[in-house]
Structure formats: structure tokens, C-alpha cells
Amino acid sequence: MTLAIGLFTGVLFGLLMQRALVLRYDKQLGALLLKDMTIVKFMLSAIVVAAIGLHLCLDLGLLELSVKGTEVGAQLIGGGLFGIGWAMLGYCPGTAWGALGEGRYDGLWGILGGWFGTAIYAEVYPTLQTSVLTWGAYGKLTWASMLGINHWIPVLVLTVISILLFRFFEKKGL
């Protein structure tokens, strides 16, 4: 059942991304070259809506958060490496599969490369565990828990910043 729900959720997500054109290399590179902000609009809209919905459900006791641990070194260095590869490939791990689904089979080269990169990561993981992964490891933190404030304050800040960005994008025709 869990597997079927996973598949169904993925189908809907893939459908939305395909319709919004965010699976395309041209849109992803467009954002990285600051010329076409379609993927940023999609992502930030999803984040804002989900942030409001998740925190509302959290207040009602309907769900639990699942926060990933803070590892400053790993997230900045690993994140930066991801960015370099992302600009070369033009897809991310999920959208590479989506791109292949709409016939853009350079996504498959990225998936094959992704498995190769993952295999290498698995080999060096023990070394990283005693180095990079320990740099700035502060555990599971949210803005609310770190600053000791109500979680609606960061949700509001995120929403306002996103709306201002959207207005800027539309004004500049990005």
C-alpha cells in the first residue's frame, strides 16, 4: 500500500511539474542564468503553501515534522557541489526522471551519472563521517527552535519574502 501511494503521489507531482515546464533543461538553466525564473516561482509557491499547510496541521496535532540535522560544512560544500553538477546536467535527481518521461533522454545520462556518483560517495562515506560531516553539526534545528520563537513568525517572513520576489520577477518579466 505504501508503495502504491508513493507511486500515485509521484505521478501527480510529475504531472504538475511537466505541465509547468519545470522539467526542462532550458528552464533550470534559465534560473541559474537569472533569465527565466519559472522554476523558482514553482518551488517557492510550493514551499509557501506547504509551509502554511504543514504548520497548520502541526498546530492541530495532525502530523509531525521531519527535520534533517544541521551540518553546516556538509550542506554548504555538498550543496555547492550539487549546484556545479546541476548546472552541467540541467536537471536535479527527481526532474532527471521527469525529463526522461517527457522524452528528453539526456536525463538518462544524468541518472546513470548519478548512480556512478552515489557509488563513489558510498565508498568515501566512512572518511567523510569523521571529517566534513562533523563540521558545524548542530542537530535538528528550525528557525523557530533555534531562535525560540513561534513557528508562524518564520512562516510569515518566508511568505512575505516570496511575494516580494514574485512581484519583482513579474515586473522584470523574468
Binding site: I77, G78, L81, M88, C92, W109, G113, V132
Partner: peptide, 27 residues
């Protein structure tokens, strides 16, 4: 690009879905 991206993203512990959508939505 895919190889570097996945190496980096496993180090970071998540991709634009895991860290981006899910992580950012949880603030």
C-alpha cells in the same frame, strides 16, 4: 554533471525535493 550532483547531494543529505521543498517548508 549527474555524478557530481549526486555525490554532492548525498553529502548535503538531500536534494531540491528533500532539502528544498520539504526542508524549506518546515523552515
Amino acid at each position: 554533471g549527474g555524478a557530481i550532483a549526486l555525490f554532492g547531494v548525498r553529502m548535503a543529505g538531500g536534494c531540491p525535493s528533500g532539502h528544498g521543498l520539504s526542508g524549506m517548508a518546515q523552515l
